[in-house]
Nucleic acid binder design. Structure first.
Length: 159
DNA sequence: GCCAACGTTGGC
DNA sequence: GCCAACGTTGGC
């Protein structure tokens, strides 16, 4: 279903931890561990079912967009914040009023052609995209429809 | 592995 | 409420 208000996102993952191949194998996953308020607010307030996500490989060689995912479950409490044994444990997050949320994403496609960050930076059609901005560390970012489609084209992905 | 850029924490 | 210290992200 193609809803009119569909939004587009970019989400970063270190492929040594969780790659597009892992997502493909598992089909879907919960996006836990986000501990940045701006990223959380995007997930909590704006992400809707079937929104599209550019799956970005960070801290890798090369870095860049590896494929596409979609939102399959809207924001709900990130239970890893309540678990003292979890690396993302946050003692200040109250189970009765959780500080942190997560969404579930599902696999859509792997780009036939990986689009590197160098290419993104060099491409006039992607001018202003958040991921190419200096010092941009946001792990969850909004992407315009135009930029999303442009990246799909560069990735040889048929929409 | 380095380190610039950035977000968060906590003393005052 | 300021801001120095600290921890993390993520490109390189």
């Amino acid at each position: 279903m193609h809803n009119k208000g569909m939004a587009y996102w970019l989400m970063k993952s270190e492929p040594s931890v969780f790659s597009i191949d892992d997502l493909k194998r598992e089909g879907q996953t919960c996006w836990d561990g986000v501990r940045n308020y701006q990223a959380r607010n995007f997930m909590r307030d704006q992400m809707k079912l079937s929104d599209r996500v550019l799956f970005y490989h960070s801290n890798a060689t090369p870095t860049g967009v590896a494929g596409i995912a979609e939102i399959v479950r809207e924001a709900y409490p990130d239970h890893t914040a309540f678990d003292p044994a979890d690396p993302h444990y946050d003692p200040k997050s109250d189970p009765n009023a959780p500080t942190w949320v997560m969404v579930d994403i599902g696999y859509v496609a792997t780009f036939p052609r990986f689009v590197t960050l160098d290419e993104i930076k060099a491409e006039p059609g992607l001018a202003g995209i958040v991921v190419a901005q200096k010092g941009s560390r946001l792990s969850v970012q909004p992407v315009s429809e135009e930029h999303f489609k442009f990246l799909c084209m560069l990735g040889k992905h048929t929409l």
